[in-house]
Write a protein that binds this DNA or RNA. Structure first.
Length: 501
RNA sequence: GCGGCCGUGGUCUAGCCUGGACUAGGACGUGGGCUUUCCGAGCCCAAUACCCGGGUUCAAAUCCCGGCGGCCGCACCA
């Protein structure tokens, strides 16, 4: 059985410090991962790049970046619907201890539809109809709700609260202040990057399904009757997007249709231009991250997969070695969130749009950070191009931008190399670099390639004569000789080199 | 959460079935030393492992039970 790509990526991640299970030395519960030194750099680079592309350099409307609390009071999540929707009724068998989902047990045993019934009602049904453990016929007891949210109690009064199950809620909670404080006019966006928490039953696949994970999200607020869409929509209207339609899925098909973002709206497949704008933007974003469009598709979620208020959800799925997997969720949530929070809080969250009072609609692209990191790793991993593995990370994402090597471990070369290294370290540009003089030069190139170091700088005997060094490019392995005085700018410019668009 | 398979240094693994000679072997990697004038060269030295707990036994990496973790399938996945 050949070794799978996922195994290789996970091994590399462990070995070289990209990520590893949390509290490994204690064998802690699954679903938590720490980013190591290189992983932390990759994440920080990815987040910065995303903020650049979706917030700072956004010219179609204003996007405000906020940073909200991870702990949210019970009432917020009750109003949003999470308290009710994010829990499953469970019970355990008195004699064998197995745990079951009560609703499924009843449906299987009695063929009854019990959706929407309360825990107490379900317990009644089990008791009166004599539903028993399917495994050992034991009596069922200990009926309780399994929350997919982590429950907390806050302060002396032990007020009930949860770790947020998505970043989005903070944005709705801050909506009124942002519209006032920033004098925001529709359309405008609010972005947030941060942790979310879901107490998954079975977290799996390393960093793909976590109980604690990071999201990069935008809530884009707009007037529902705004058919012009974002400023500059024309610029992205020709972008080809690949959509796995509902019809195709109903036939069990896997083939996406390909059409222009503008046409997708015109043909009524994508509900509005704001959503289509993001779909097009995402295609470009991931292309820059080394994930080609042909390895992506937008899956139009089926009606039963989306909440009743959804105006259409399109998951951006990427082709991994183990199959297609969602890495961005794009949801048209209409006015649901602001409406329920108006009702829940008693605060009027409508907005004055050119003299008309209204509750704006919202489109929400939500990016899963860890999944994207994993996708980038898989798509940049190369075997066979060299005698060792090579990680062709996008240059802007790679954790280390340059490595400094003396050609040989000789005093005159190492001291010169360290001079170059410290000069780069001290630079105001704060470029991540490292110094290595261990083993042969070839081995050092191999070590650098394996973690995607963009450039390798070698100090040789000629350096001692004329203050020039060789610069080796990771992707071509070609070398150029450059002046030491030009190095800082060269490395700095190189790390912003984008390929793909 | 259910079912199946699995858990040996940093990584991959040999050994487990058929308990004892296992002071647990190897490869790669790592640290140190020598060597080395541009793509994992070579030599020497060193450190590091039987997931945790209980049981059976004169004796457990090996057999049994439980926990934790991993993989796969089902379920779940705003």
């Amino acid at each position: 059985m050949p070794e799978q790509l996922t195994d290789k990526i996970v091994q590399l991640a462990l070995r070289r410090g990209f990520f590893n299970p949390t509290a490994e030395i204690y064998r802690a519960p699954a679903g938590f991962y720490d980013l190591g030194p290189l992983g932390a750099l990759v994440k920080s680079n990815l987040v910065s790049f995303w903020i650049d592309e979706f917030v700072r350099r956004e010219t179609s409307y204003e996007v405000f970046l906020i940073d909200g609390s991870l702990i949210l009071p019970y009432d917020v999540l009750k109003a949003s619907g999470h308290v009710d929707k994010f829990s499953d009724p469970k019970a355990s068998c008195k004699s064998c201890g197995r745990i079951y989902r009560v609703d499924q047990l009843i449906e299987e045993a009695l063929g009854l539809k019990v959706e929407g019934k309360s825990l107490e009602e379900l317990e009644q049904i089990v008791k009166t109809r004599g539903v028993r453990c399917p495994h050992c016929r034991g009596e069922l007891s200990d009926f309780r709700e399994h929350h997919l949210m982590f429950k907390l109690s806050v302060g002396g009064a032990e007020e009930s609260a949860f770790l947020r199950p998505e970043t989005a809620q903070n944005i709705f909670l801050n909506f009124k202040r942002i519209t006032y404080g920033m004098r925001a006019k529709l359309p405008f966006g609010v972005a947030q990057v941060g942790k979310s928490f879901r107490n998954e039953i079975a977290p799996r696949q390393s960093v793909i399904r976590l109980r604690e994970f990071s999201q990069m999200e935008i809530e884009l607020f707009f007037a529902p009757n705004d058919e012009r869409g974002p400023r500059g929509f024309e610029e992205v209207a020709d972008t080809e997007i690949r959509i796995l339609t509902r019809e195709e899925q109903l036939h069990g098909g896997e083939e996406p249709i390909e059409l222009k973002a503008g046409d997708a709206v015109a043909e009524g497949i994508v509900p509005n231009r704001f959503l289509a704008y993001y779909l097009a933007k995402e295609v470009r974003f991931f292309k820059l991250l080394g994930i080609p469009p042909e390895n992506t598709r937008f899956r139009h979620l089926l009606p039963e997969e989306t909440p009743h208020y959804s105006g259409g959800n399109f998951d951006l799925e990427v082709k991994f070695s183990f199959g297609w997997k969602e890495i961005v969720g794009n949801a048209y949530r209409r006015d649901y969130d602001l409406t329920v929070h108006s009702r829940g809080s008693g605060e009027d969250l409508s907005i004055d749009n050119n003299g008309v009072k209204m509750i704006p609609h919202v489109v929400e692209p939500s990016f899963g950070v860890e999944r994207i990191i994993y996708a980038i790793l898989e798509h940049s991993y190369r075997e066979g191009e060299r005698d060792w593995p090579l990680l062709k990370l996008p240059r802007i994402i790679s954790p280390i931008k340059a490595a400094i090597f003396p050609l040989l471990d000789r005093e005159n070369l190492t001291s010169k190399a360290l001079d170059v290294y410290y000069a780069l370290k001290r630079s105001r540009k704060a470029i991540p670099v490292y110094y290595d003089d261990r083993g042969s030069i070839g081995r050092r190139y191999a070590r650098a390639d394996e973690v995607g170091v963009n450039l390798c700088i070698t100090i040789d005997y000629q350096t001692l004569q004329d203050d020039t060094v060789t610069v080796r490019d990771r992707d071509t392995a070609e070398q150029a000789r450059v002046k030491i005085s030009d190095l800082e700018d060269l490395i700095y410019n190189d790390m912003f080199r984008l390929e793909g668009v």
